[in-house]
């Protein structure tokens, strides 16, 4: 469908849809929205690799696909390696990778597939300098298998294997900072993004396409199903995560950190605004919330310092 010229002008995102309806994501899925943005920006001049995760289901069972782009489904821990192989093959065939008219090689994996089982392949991808983009859509647990904690699950969260219970058996480890591990590789480009800020996310996607070398984006993608949150709160939660500095938006490029605008410019909002909308935090005591709040603020201070020193 061709949109009228004045509409196109006012739209801040590309009008073309390459992510098709009829996909089988849950209601209010942040990951599905993320995929829609990625496909809008890169169009079908993209080769996707998706490991076994929610997105396998979202893309559709044979003979269906929600993607109007080449898509390769692979094993859980192999995303980094497979996109390396695809990129090498494209180069060997003489195809242009990245740049204005080049092909984008994109890996799209969840937090479990990235921070846990896929960390080694991700490290290899970054270290070897493949000309691709790895997007970790972070919904903070193994959602596809039925909400088990990953190393990206935050302190105090309920999951099916941190079920609360009489012994108060909740997640007791802070969220793993995958982005810091990524930056330790000194990649060409690394950034955090959020589905609540599509313009920011899409700007980062465009940037990743122009920069030579491996890029990484950690996309905050709320999961109403796994977070025990109302399906209409996906964007609100993603926005609050940024405003509370729970998930600040920033970029790393050429050794420099840059905190992006949607992140709090003054005092971050209270974390309770973010917590109270989600059933997964309902077992947290006041002390638990305090622990998480302190962690958030100390990480936020650390990031601000990095931006100050390496800005």
């Amino acid at each position: 469908m061709e949109l009228p010229a004045d509409v196109k002008k006012r739209l801040t995102l590309p009008a073309e849809e390459h992510f098709y309806a009829g996909h089988t994501a849950c209601q209010g899925c942040g990951a599905a929205l993320g995929l829609r943005y990625v496909l809008k920006v890169y169009g079908n001049k993209t080769i996707f690799t998706i490991p076994a995760c929610c997105s396998t289901i979202i893309a559709g069972p044979w003979p269906y696909s929600a993607f109007n782009a080449p898509l390769f489904h692979t094993a859980f821990e192999t995303t980094g390696a497979v996109i390396g192989g695809i990129e090498a093959a494209l180069k060997a065939k003489g195809y242009k990778v990245k740049g204005e008219d080049g092909i984008m090689v994109v890996g799209w994996a969840g937090d479990g597939g990235t921070a846990d089982i896929g960390l080694q392949a991700l490290s290899g991808f970054l270290e070897r300098g493949h000309d691709g983009l790895y997007i970790m859509y972070d919904n903070e647990a193994y959602m596809n298998t039925g909400i088990q904690r990953s190393s990206s699950t935050p302190y105090g969260a309920w999951t099916t294997n941190t079920p609360g219970g009489k012994k108060h058996f909740l997640e007791r480890k802070p969220k793993k900072k995958v982005i810091d591990i990524v930056i330790a590789h000194k990649p060409a480009y690394a950034a955090t993004a959020s589905v609540a800020y599509p313009e920011d996310f899409m700007r980062k996607l465009k940037k990743a396409k122009t920069i030579k070398g491996p890029s990484f984006i950690q996309l905050f993608a709320p999961c109403p199903t796994g977070w025990r949150a109302p399906t209409d709160k996906t964007i609100e939660l993603a926005r609050l995560a940024v405003q509370t500095a729970y998930f600040p938006l920033f970029e790393y490029e050429n050794g420099k950190y840059k905190i992006n605008m949607p992140s709090p410019s003054k005092e971050p909002k209270s974390l309770e605004d973010f917590i109270k909308l989600q059933g997964r935090f309902k077992y947290m005591t006041k002390e638990d919330i305090q622990v998480l709040q302190e962690w958030v603020l100390s990480e936020w201070e650390e990031l601000k310092k990095k931006a100050e020193i390496f800005g």
């Binding site: 949109l3 009228p4 309806a21 209601q27 599905a32 829609r36 996906t234 609100e236």
Partner: peptide, 30 residues
């Protein structure tokens, strides 16, 4: 912000809700 997408725009750039695909998540209303 529609994750389906099940909302498109008409000639006057008003949203049209595609009820064949809309799962009713309510993000648009929120």
């Amino acid at each position: 912000l529609c994750p389906e997408p099940a909302i498109y725009l008409d000639e006057e750039s008003y949203p049209v809700f595609d009820y064949e695909y809309c799962k009713g998540c309510g993000i648009c209303a929120n």
